[in-house]
Each structure stands twice: as structure tokens, then as C-alpha cells.
């Protein structure tokens, strides 16, 4: 056959070879079919480690207890023992190195998350002691009268 027939074929083969070379450099070496098979498990394996290495920010009460045992004890003895320290004090992250001081959320908005009265007969929310935020000392911080660590005392 004449060369003008063969020439496009060589061009095509060249394009395929180029694509394969490019693919070799672009696709990560650990890209493949994982445990869940081709349909659900087709991925870059090292991405699982990327997600595992994500920074943990909320360290829970057990971490706070290590230094602030007195505060931990007083909280655990109160009705607010259900609530994590970090829900009001903010995530510990690397405290006490970073941040050196946690910013406490003393806002009314925080307290009324639970204590704004909602008259719901079939929800546990209806049983929580609550106020009407528009009528009960509007504008004042709740902690002026109520100690969040000992909510029973006024």
C-alpha cells in the first residue's frame, strides 16, 4: 500500500504513545481499585491518609480534665454535666500552646439554644426549663445571674 495510507496510522500511534506517556506522569502511582471494587473503590489510595492526617480540634472533657480538674469536677456535679466544655469554651485545638487562651462564649444566644421555651409535647425539648428570650431580662447575659457550671444556684 502507498505511504499516504500508512502515514495517518503512524500519526495515530504517535498520539496514543504520547497519551500513555502523559498518563504515566499525571496519574498517581497509587491510583487503583480499592477494597470496594471498581464501581465504588476506584481512587488514589494515599487520599485515605490525607483525611486521617486532618487536624483534630475538639478534644473532649477528658483533655480539659488533665489541667482543670476542679472545673471538671464542679461541672460533672451539676445538671450541665451532659455538656462538653468545648461547646461553650470553644475547641481546644493545641491549647495551651495554640490558642493560649480560649474565648468563652457567654452570649445569650448560646444558652437559649436549649433554654428558649418551645412548647413541643412529643419532644424532649418541651421538658427542658425554658424562658421566652423576648420577655426574660432581654439583652442581659444569662451568666449575670446563673452560673453555667452550677445552674441550680441563682
Amino acid at each position: 500500500m502507498k505511504s499516504h495510507v500508512w502515514r495517518p496510522l503512524w500519526v495515530l500511534l504517535g498520539v496514543i504513545a504520547l497519551a500513555l506517556v502523559a498518563r504515566h506522569f499525571v496519574v498517581p502511582s497509587d491510583f487503583g481499585v480499592g477494597e470496594r471494587g471498581f464501581m465504588y473503590g476506584f481512587h488514589r489510595k494515599s487520599n485515605e491518609d490525607d483525611w486521617k492526617a486532618f487536624k483534630v480540634k475538639y478534644l473532649t472533657k477528658e483533655y480539659c480534665k488533665e489541667c482543670h480538674e476542679d472545673k471538671y469536677e464542679s461541672n460533672m456535679a451539676s445538671k450541665h454535666n451532659l455538656i462538653e466544655c468545648e461547646n461553650c469554651h470553644g475547641p481546644a485545638i493545641d491549647h495551651p500552646d495554640n490558642p493560649a487562651k480560649l474565648v468563652i462564649d457567654k452570649s445569650r444566644a448560646l444558652c437559649i439554644r436549649c433554654h428558649a421555651k418551645l412548647p413541643y409535647p412529643t419532644s424532649h425539648r418541651g421538658e427542658i426549663k425554658g424562658i421566652n428570650p423576648d420577655e426574660h431580662n432581654p439583652g442581659e447575659e444569662c451568666s449575670m445571674c446563673h452560673d453555667p457550671h452550677k445552674p441550680d444556684m441563682e
Partner: peptide, 15 residues
């Protein structure tokens, strides 16, 4: 996006 062996669906942000 893929499912890990322990059933969690994740997104590869670089991909």
C-alpha cells in the same frame, strides 16, 4: 470520590 474499605465515602480534594 470513593468508598473506603470501612464504608466511609470520601472526596479526594486534589483529584
Amino acid at each position: 470520590t470513593y468508598q473506603t474499605g470501612n464504608g466511609v465515602v470520601l472526596v479526594d480534594r486534589t483529584w
